[in-house]
Amino acid sequence: MSSLAGGSGLIAQIGPGEGSQATETRSYGKGLPPPDQMVTVERRGEVCLIGINRPQVHNRVDPEAFSALARAYAAYDADDGLRAAVLFGHGESFSRGIDVDAFAEVLRTGKARVPDADGIDPLGRRAFLSKPLVAVVHGDTWNMGHELFLVADIRIASAETRFAQDENTHGRFPGGGSTVRFPREAGWGNAMRYMLTGDHWGAEEARRMGLVQGIAPDPRAALELGLDVAGKIARCGPLGIRATLASARMAVRQSEGTAYSHLGEQYRALYRTEDFLEGRKAEAEGREPVYRGR
């Protein structure tokens, strides 16, 4: 079954296993997550799983779901016990993008507000996560769905994933950040090839363009791969992980010169941490380090 939320239920299967140290997990047994819960949040040890849960409309994102996603991102970023997050979609698709009618109604009634006002913008246009995000996609990953995917630091796709950035064929344009990120990640010609024509593409083409770092044979295997990658991140020193992201993002969003100028300061700061000492001690003792984030 291609549906991640189908059958015995995704959350029941990706919740903490025997012996897990997870401090908070909701379980939905053999059923699906409640339909009124537009975004699910699960904890698996030091990894947070965030799921878009509107499968009845192919996980199209309306203002309420966008706001819930922003709050989930903010809660993950603020929780020192979480070191990596995995974003996925319940149902047959990751997301077919924006719920146009729902957003249009908000604008028409004059009740518009910044949907991420009480969280972190999932499209990364204003505030940004300070910790890693792994996106795992399957099925239709279109428009805003593709833009949510592009924001992630590491991206995994199921082999049958169908990507699209086809707003121009509908009289709109890609307004969620892909006009910035898509050319940067895939190259100008590759990005314009798909944004200007509205043609769809598959997982192998996404990998050719550098958009995907791993492809799995089916949606469940893709999620397992994403969890494995997130777990490896979570076992690293969290202070170093944050510094790595901060430095790389500084180079992209400001300049390489600015990023270079901060390297010494960032490195010296880590030398004074308990985690640095633990890393050295664990290496000398031939054991796995236990990082505390301080």
Rank of each mutant, 00 (worst) to 15 (best):
L277Y: 10
G237S: 15
H138G: 01
R249N: 11
F163M: 05
H90T: 12
L277N: 11
L129E: 00
G237D: 15
G237C: 15
S2G: 12
A282Q: 02
E224Y: 07
Q165M: 13
E18A: 14
G293A: 03
D228L: 11
G177Q: 07
S130L: 08
W201E: 03
Y267N: 12
L10K: 02
A191L: 02
E224V: 11
G124K: 08
V290G: 12
N53E: 05
L148R: 06
P238V: 02
A159I: 07
Q37V: 14
E278V: 02
V106A: 11
G97V: 00
A84E: 01
E204W: 10
D36K: 11
M38Q: 15
Q266D: 09
H262I: 04
V180D: 15
G226Y: 00
C236L: 13
Y28G: 04
L133H: 03
R242F: 00
G91P: 03
Q254R: 15
G9S: 06
N190D: 13
S95L: 11
G17H: 08
H200K: 15
F88R: 07
G19P: 04
I241C: 04
R292F: 00
E204F: 12
V39E: 01
G91F: 01
R208K: 14
I233S: 02
I50R: 01
K131C: 00
A65L: 12
D140L: 13
Y73Q: 08
A234C: 06
Q254L: 14
L133D: 01
L148S: 07
L10P: 02
D153E: 12
F128H: 15
T40F: 06
R44M: 08
G6S: 09
K232L: 14
A117M: 12
A117F: 13
I52Y: 03
G187C: 08
C236V: 03
A127Y: 13
V290Q: 15
F182M: 09
S247I: 12
Y260Q: 14
A127F: 10
G19I: 11
G97I: 00
C236N: 09
R60S: 09
T109F: 03
S3V: 10
C48A: 15
P219W: 00
G31H: 10
A70S: 12
G279I: 00
N143A: 13
H138E: 02
K131S: 03
R249A: 07
F94N: 01
L150I: 01
